[in-house]
Amino acid sequence: MISVSDPRAEAPATEQSARLRRALAKSPPSVRAAFAAVALVVLVAALGPLLTRDPTAQDLLAVLRPPFATGSAGTYLLGTDQLGRDLLARLVSGMRTSFVITFSAVLVGGLVGTAIGLASGYLGGRVDNLLMRIVDIQLAVPGVLLVLTLAAVLRPGVGTTICVLSLIVWVIYARVARAQVLSLRETDLVMAARATGCSNARILLYHVLPNIAGSIWVITTLEFAHVMIAEAALGYLGLGVPPPAPTLGAMISEGQRYLQLGKWWLVVMPGVIVSLTIISINAIGNWLRDIHDPRSRGRPG
C-alpha cells in the first residue's frame, strides 16, 4: 500500500464553499443582480428600522404627502400615509415583519414537509398511506380558505401567522419529497448504499436527500414567493399581524383606498418591494437548481 498525503483533503467544507463561489463568479448578470437585490432588501429589513423614524408616529399636519415632502419632522423621502406616518419607516419595518414571517413559515413547513415526505416514501406501507391521506385531505381544502379560517379563529400575531402559513407549505414538500423518494428507493443507488451497510437514516440523509435537493430548492423558491404573497394577502384582509405594526400586505390594503385620490405611493412602494423580492428569489432558485446538479456542471478535461 502506498500512502499519499493530500493537502486538499484537510478542508472538505471549504471546498464546497469554494465551489459555490466559483459558480457564482460564472453566473449570468441577472443572477448577480438578483442576489444583490435580495441582499439589499434583507439588509434594509434587518438594519433599516434602526435608522428610520418611528413607523407609528403620526404627523397629522402632513397626511398623504408625496415623496420628498417636508413636514414637522423633516423630509419624508417616500411621503406619508393617511395618518401622516413616515412611509419609508413603515415600509422598512413592514419588510422586516413580512420577511421574518415568510422565512420562518417556509423553514418550518419545508423541514416538516420534507421529513414527512422522506419517511413516507422510504418506509412505504401503512405509514405512507396514513401520511399521504392527511396530505390529500389538506390539499382538498383550498389553501387560502384554510389559512383564512385558522387566522380568523386563532389569536392574531406573528407566531400564529407563521404557523398558519407553514401549514400550506408542508404538504407541497411532503408530496414532492415522497414522489422523488419512491423512484430513488428502487434504484441501484439505494441498493448499493444498503449493501455498504448504511442505516436507513444514513441512506435518507446522505444518499436520498442530496439527490432530491434540486427539487427541494426549486419548490423552496416557489413557496417563498407563494408564502410571501399569502402573507401579504392575510395582511391585506386584516387577518395577519394586527395594526399598528406595519406589514407589506396591510400597507397595500390601506393605501388602496387612496389610489383614486392619486396617492399612488402608498400602494406602489410596498408593491414594488414584494415584486422585486419574489422575482429575485425565483431567479436565484433557478440558478441554484442548475448548479446543484453535478451532471449539469460540465466535464473537466
Binding site: T187, A192, T196, N211, A213
Partner: peptide, 24 residues
C-alpha cells in the same frame, strides 16, 4: 446485518453509474 453489509461481504453492481451516488 448492517455490520456485515460492506464489512465482511461487499457487493459490486452491473452499472456503476447508477449504483454510485451522483452528488457525492
Amino acid at each position: 446485518i448492517r455490520r456485515l453489509r460492506g464489512g465482511s461481504v461487499a457487493m459490486i453492481f452491473q452499472n456503476p453509474m447508477s449504483a454510485l451516488n451522483p452528488v457525492l
